[in-house]
């Protein structure tokens, strides 16, 4: 790692002020950023830790919605939303491994927007609201492509608000070495309709599979997906799988998610 200064503010206001410095970078749980720094792929002058800010921690279970503080680790989400939103808890409880889940945070994952990360699929399929230090962003407007989001410099995710669906499931086909999603599909059924978000598959990062959404909104069953195929165009192709293979997996994982959610 290149050298950097480290500060650990205890309030959001102090964190925002610290991020105003030249070449400052926010540090969540560090489970992606620290490996990136070790490879010298980033060289911030100052790291601003978000782990000491009480107002960014914790989970609030409200009427029909769940609000998760931006600096809340995956392990807390897995433990605390299990009854209120089991599919979200299951997703959080399957990210990385237990030690990673004790450090990695929901805000860090969404700010990084790794094209193979799990949380973007949950946020997009749930129509979540990304609450930042200066505004609220609908998930549909938030994800702008691989490692790219609507966040501006110095803007922090303070919380994420999830409307609780009637039924949901996340199905991840793991890349066995990294345990990131080779393809992950989150299906969530709301009174207004079904939303299907796919991670791991596309070159532009997480996306909604709208054709499947229309079919599943009319008939929430695996049979509704017959005759629908996800196009291979724009899918990631690498040593782990071709674009056609990923496109095929999108349908398989969607079907599994519908079966799990409907069951």
């Amino acid at each position: 790692m290149y050298e950097f200064d480290f500060v650990k503010p205890t309030t959001l206001a102090d964190a925002i002020a610290a991020l105003g410095a030249e070449e400052a970078q926010a540090l969540g749980g560090g489970q992606t950023l620290i490996p990136t720094l070790k490879q010298r792929l980033a060289a911030p002058a100052v790291l601003v830790s978000l782990t000491g800010i009480g107002e960014m921690q914790g989970i609030e279970l409200g009427e029909g919605q769940i609000t998760i503080g931006g600096a809340t680790p995956h392990a807390a989400v897995a433990a605390e939303v299990a009854a209120a939103y089991p599919a979200l808890a299951a997703l959080a409880g399957n990210i990385g491994d237990p030690a990673v889940r004790n450090r990695g945070t929901i805000g860090g994952s969404l700010a990084n927007n790794d094209p193979s990360a799990c949380y973007p699929a949950a946020a997009l399929a749930s129509g979540a609201t990304i609450v930042t230090s200066n505004r609220e962003i609908a998930a549909d407007d938030y994800f702008e492509g691989m490692f790219t989001t609507a966040l501006e410099d110095g803007e922090l995710i303070t919380a994420v608000r999830f409307p609780v669906p009637e039924a949901a499931s996340y199905q991840k086909f793991e890349q066995p070495a990294s345990r990131f999603a080779l393809v992950g599909v989150f299906v969530a059924k709301y009174p207004e309709g079904v939303r299907v978000a796919v991670t791991g598959a596309a070159e532009d990062g997480v996306f909604r599979w709208s054709e499947a959404e229309v079919a599943l909104s009319a008939d929430f069953s695996p049979a509704a997906l017959e005759g629908i195929d996800c196009p291979a165009e724009g899918m990631i192709a690498d040593l782990h799988g071709t674009a056609a293979y990923r496109a095929h997996l999108v349908k398989v994982m969607t079907r599994r998610a519908v079966m799990a959610a409907a069951g």
């Binding site: 650990k8 560090g30 489970q31 620290i34 830790s49 392990a75 030690a99 990673v100 450090r103």
Partner: peptide, 27 residues
């Protein structure tokens, strides 16, 4: 591994297992 894959560096911080190669001492 020094890349947070292998877990040989697991310690407990405030009772939680963490990979000490992927946490800054100041944290």
């Amino acid at each position: 591994c020094d890349t947070s894959q292998c877990g040989a560096c697991v310690v407990h911080v405030d009772g939680k297992a963490v990979k000490s190669c992927t946490m800054l001492a100041l944290e």
